[in-house]
Amino acid sequence: MMVYILSFILFLVGLYGIITRRNLIKIVISLSIMEFSIFILLVLIGYIDGGIAPIITDQVINPTYVDPLPQAMVLTAIVIGLATTAMLMAIAIRLYRKYGTFDIREIKNLKG
């Protein structure tokens, strides 16, 4: 149970970072933390105590396998996460070129 709570705390840490940080790069890092807390939760859901990797061989008799589906989901989600993070960083660097700063307090043209 403790690990589930820890992954939820990690989620909240990421959320806190997004709300309080002023630096664009730090916001991106906070988003990544949030993302990976969910990946950990997904892997935990598929984990079975004493389970082994789900590869069918003849050597083990009556094996307990961990659930492979969440692992496949996490792999897919990591690839998606790569794309979103790359997109965020690209925009952050473009913003730095235009404004000369990473501080979100100075980047506020849009209001209302």
């Binding site: 916001i27 993302e35 235009k98």
Partner: peptide, 25 residues
């Protein structure tokens, strides 16, 4: 303006995606 709008959209959009993934889990 476009870059700023896109960054704002991405931060909120990513949070939404995480919540959706969370609920899928």
């Amino acid at each position: 303006k476009e870059l700023e709008a896109s960054f704002k959209y991405q931060v909120l959009g990513n949070i939404a995606s995480f919540l959706i993934l969370f609920s899928v889990a």
